[in-house]
Amino acid sequence: MANPTNGGQHADQAAMPQLNVLAQYVKDFSFENPNAPRSLQPSNQQPQINIQINVNATPLQQSDFEIDLKIEGKAEIGSTLLFAFDLVYGGVFRIQNVPQDSIHPVLMIECPRLLFPFAREIIASAVRNGGFPPLYIDPVDFVGLYRQKLAEQAAAQQQPS
């Protein structure tokens, strides 16, 4: 028989940490192919690809947060720009029963980890639709990115004004 105190869930299940995706969406996106059709001609040189990734979290309500995964990139051969893109892929997440000191790592590591495959596919499709082979960005180490940002913040706080 179901436990009537919690809609059929056991009391210990109700207190388990939860991370729910309430929505995900393209917030901003641009793709540039400024030198087409010249940039689409075969080349013996491999393009230099540069990609930057940032994560931002914005509280919406007590347990709801918006996460923006920003991915910027460009491909060049020498000084010739082949293509450039800028994507902000967002998600709204609900976090419940997570200790306060663990919320920030969940927001900055787990939430973007859930968004990344969708953002990666949008970029790959845009690059392919721009006339190039699809660009499949390697998986991102969001733990390493989080630690790097913490180290940068700590170093900035130690700098004299």
Rank of each mutant, 00 (worst) to 15 (best):
S102T: 07
V127G: 02
H10D: 08
G78N: 00
I103P: 00
N3L: 04
A119T: 02
G90C: 02
E32P: 03
E32W: 07
G131W: 07
A2R: 03
D141W: 11
P99V: 04
G73K: 01
N129W: 09
D138A: 12
R128Y: 04
N56Q: 05
N129M: 08
E110I: 10
Q148G: 02
D86L: 08
A151D: 03
R147A: 15
N35E: 04
R147E: 15
T5L: 06
D86N: 15
D28E: 07
E32K: 04
E121R: 12
Q13P: 10
R120I: 14
Q46M: 13
Q52Y: 01
G90P: 06
Q153M: 14
D68W: 11
L115G: 07
T80C: 07
N54G: 12
P42E: 11
L22S: 01
L82C: 02
Q157S: 08
Y25S: 06
Q41D: 13
I122E: 10
D141E: 09
A57K: 09
M108G: 08
R113I: 05
L135T: 03
A156I: 09
R94W: 05
E76H: 00
D141Q: 02
E32R: 04
D86H: 10
T58I: 11
R120W: 11
I49V: 15
I103T: 00
A23N: 06
E110W: 12
L114H: 03
K70D: 12
N97A: 11
Y146L: 06
P99C: 12
P112H: 00
Q62I: 01
Q148K: 10
A124L: 12
Q13R: 11
F85Q: 05
L145Y: 09
D12R: 11
I71F: 13
N3T: 10
A155P: 02
R94P: 01
T5W: 09
G8V: 04
P105V: 02
K27L: 03
Q153G: 03
Q62W: 04
K70Y: 14
A15C: 09
L40H: 07
I109M: 08
A126F: 10
P139A: 00
P42S: 10
S63K: 15
A36E: 13
Q157C: 08
L87W: 14
L69M: 01
L150A: 14
S43I: 09
A151L: 01
P34L: 05
D86R: 07
P133H: 12
H10T: 06
G78K: 02
N20R: 15
V140M: 08
I137F: 13
Q61R: 06
M16Y: 14
A14E: 09
L82N: 10
